[in-house]
Each structure stands twice: as C-alpha cells, then as structure tokens.
Design a protein around this nucleic acid. Structure first.
Lengths: 118, 118
DNA sequence: TCGGGGTACATCGTAATAAGAGGTATAATG
DNA sequence: CATTATACCTCTTATTACGATGTACCCCGA
C-alpha cells in the first residue's frame, strides 16, 4: 500500500540527486537509501528508478560507471553527482520548498480568514 | 512560467477540496482562489480543473448545482463540499504532511551522517 | 545438486495526471 | 461592433510511476 503514489510524481529525480549528494551509489542502493531515509514511507519501484537514472545521466546531472563488486555478485553501475547535478539539486530543493509553502498556503486558509502576511 | 509544473501532480484534488471547505464556489472561482492563496505560485489550468471537478463530483466528494448569477453573465456550476469530501480532505491533508516529512527526511540527510533514531 | 532468495540490471505496457489548444456563450466596456 | 472578462467544456499530447517481465549472478540450505 502506497498512499503517496499520486503525490510522488515530480519529486523522484530530486530524491535521487539528494541521495547521491552524500556519496556515489548504484541504482539498487539508491532505492534502498530513499526507503531508509524516509522510514519506508517512500519506495521507488524499479520501473521508475532505472528510466529516471538514464534520464538524469543523459541530462548530465549524474555520471555512471560500471563496477565489479569485490565480493562477487552482478556488476553494477555506480552513479556520481556531477557539478551540474549539484546545482540542480540546490535549485530543485528550493523549488520544492516554495511549492510546499504554496500548498500549505492553500490548505491553511481553509477555515481561517484570508490574512496572510508575507 | 510555472516551475512547479512537475511537482503539482497529485495534489490538485486536495487543493480543490481545501478551497471548498470554506464556502461553495464555482470552477472559475476555485482556480482564482487557489492562485490567491498561494500568492500566484500555483495556477490551475482549465484543462486540469474541469476534469478534476467532474471526477470529484462523480466520487461524491463535492456536489455541483447550476446557478444563474444575479448580475448576469454565463451560468455557472457551484460546488459544495460533501460530508464525505470533508473527511477525505482531512485524510488527504494528513497524507500530504506525511509525504512532505518523508521527502524532507531524504533531502535533509544529504550532508549529514545517517543517524536516525526511531 | 538443485531450488529459492537476495542482488542488480533493464524494458514494455498501462494508467493517471496536467495542461495547452480549441470551442461555446454571455455581459460589459470602449 | 470588437475586445475583454467571465464561465463552461473536451480533445489531445506529454510526462510520470510502476507492475510485470526478463536476464544473470551469488550464496545457502535441503
């Protein structure tokens, strides 16, 4: 069950960039890190994750490099945040917070008179 | 310019319900009220507004009634929040805030060590 | 030794959503 | 009489999320 399914749209790339800001990670690890940080509230399906990674790589916001894990297992593509990706993350984070404020402005006005100091 | 275009998805119906909680309004007025409350950060295209209103009406969350405006002008459909719509709004507001907390949890962890008590 | 589970990649098709473009109609304003 | 504002609506397109599906590797236990 994922009640935020409809709300998630649009924020996925921002979440990926945010997770990569700390350290390079491969796709599977990114998804698990998002789950961990959100305390399992958010979970990224693989059908959303990989297309997004390809899009972000194509846009130059992240850079992927294939890696053979030392302990064995399937090879994996480790993504690093580029400089462009970093400034994009800053920008997207700001946009996100503006957006949240705007929504809160609409929600809070329900029941209260429309006094709204800047 | 609408930088939040991609982020808006999923929250539109909640915004409509929130605006109707105060008082009944017709479609056009709903759109303008959302703009006003969000200080023009959010703006609902007509192509999103009317299909959403029909969907919400069909779902029984709002009830529409045609009205002839006394001052003249085109007739309009005034929507009122139903009881079901009200509890749905409460639920959606809670979901929205949970969602925001979850996203913040992912964003904030960027740069900090991953200490996270339950 | 063979299957199941976890890791890790990827794509296809579908459903939901948002919004631009277009269409209808009325009243007031210039 | 044309433009502007109000007010409704639908069609089509683009984007997004994700379930389903497929490949492939490793480890562990029966």
């Amino acid at each position: 069950m994922r009640p935020e399914r409809e709300l998630l749209k649009g924020s996925t790339p921002t979440l990926i960039l945010a997770v990569l800001e700390n350290e390079p990670r491969h796709g599977y690890a990114i998804a698990r890190e998002i789950e961990r940080r959100s305390e399992s509230t958010l979970s990224l399906g693989e059908g959303s994750l990989y297309p997004q990674l390809h899009a972000l790589e194509k846009a130059g916001l992240i850079a992927g490099a294939w890696e053979m894990p030392p302990g064995g297992g399937p090879s994996r593509k480790v993504y690093t945040l580029t400089a462009t990706g970093h400034s994009e993350l800053v920008h997207r984070t700001r946009s996100w917070r503006d957006f949240v404020s705007a929504i809160e402005g609409v929600l809070k006005n329900g029941g209260e008179p429309d006094v709204q100091p800047i």
